[in-house]
Write a protein that binds this DNA or RNA. Sequence first.
DNA 1: TGGGACATTGCCACTGAGTGGCATTATCTG
DNA 2: CAGATAATGCCACTCAGTGGCAATGTCCCA
Lengths: 206, 206
Amino acid sequence: MRDDLRDLPLRERKKLRTRRALAETALRLFTERGYDATTLDDLCDAVEVSKRTFFRNYRSKEDVALAADSDLWSAYLDYVAAQEMNGPLIEALRVALDTTLSTMDPDWDRRFLAARELSEAVPALQAHSLGYCQDTTRALVKVVSGRSGTDVEEVRLRLTVEIFVAAWRTASLRWTAQGGHGGRDTLTKLVEETFAEIPAALASSA
Amino acid sequence: MRDDLRDLPLRERKKLRTRRALAETALRLFTERGYDATTLDDLCDAVEVSKRTFFRNYRSKEDVALAADSDLWSAYLDYVAAQEMNGPLIEALRVALDTTLSTMDPDWDRRFLAARELSEAVPALQAHSLGYCQDTTRALVKVVSGRSGTDVEEVRLRLTVEIFVAAWRTASLRWTAQGGHGGRDTLTKLVEETFAEIPAALASSA
DNA sequence: TGGGACATTGCCACTGAGTGGCATTATCTG
DNA sequence: CAGATAATGCCACTCAGTGGCAATGTCCCA
């Protein structure tokens, strides 16, 4: 995603440009006019592509709105898959997230914030975004459990990953609530704080 | 939901019958023929109602498939809202869930299992079902934080509830994986086990 | 017991998301 | 420059979901 590589074949370059124009314009239109009030025809008109082309780039209307989420999770999975891990698993997962965040495109913060805000306003987007988290959970469980030297069995592993995602969601919610102030650095800090809160959260009483 | 009360006004009775017939038939058709392969027209034909009537009873195709989820969460929220809570919050939430499970309609186990199985096979249903969990999370945070005598502040509370839901999902996944064997009693037992695993899950290493 | 108020339903036409097929155009390769 | 290949545009289609309005059924009271 951070590869602005203009040394690609011309055809690829065009395709990538279209992809980005679609995501960019979608975010703008959805934010300005509202998600439901913007039809895919509107979007395609604005980008000057056919609706058919849209669906060759994104699987659904929700997909294009949440492209930033998708970018993060796929980068994260790539990173975790290529990484040795040791020490407490949940801590390792969090550190890997820190690292992934720092490698995202400079523009990613803005796109992600916009996606989060849309996602809170539009139930369909929220559900779709939770779907991404779930897919990532599945993939993580698979990757980590396929690792040599893991002493954790399936159920416990799944629970760990679920808690990891729960903490991430809480952290990014806090970040969004304060308007994404401070960009990814603040986000990373909030992630750290939120994970540190887990023991206290489990001990808290009603 | 367990009120088979035939002492309702005739109009209400008819409406309730239609609602149930829709949910029941939907579950059967979706399971037999597949979710995507079954259109709402098929369903409405089978139940002999107009599509318009369907949408007066359920908000979407996903909704009718996940009626059992919806029943559980709404009963749960009712119960929690009417309940005093003390001691460790996450434990209190789990006990409330146990209680709610035990008060569900005798038929609920079967319906819920079918919904879970569909939900694992159909991404759209999975996302929708996660949406329910999220809505419940929100509502829980609101209810509990509006309580007198809570020493937990917003963020920590949200984290606790998120972890609660994460554990519930892990538990119900285990139950579904073993074919719902043993009904709600086994489900309750799995919930208990899964919650007990939380500390170990947090301590596990990669 | 009849009839008017009110809720529920059915029907019809419509919008918008998403898909399949096929001709057209643009890019790549030798 | 020509032929292989990939991306696009266009068209027609299915299906989910909505709004309006007329018809039907239920309730309640004189």
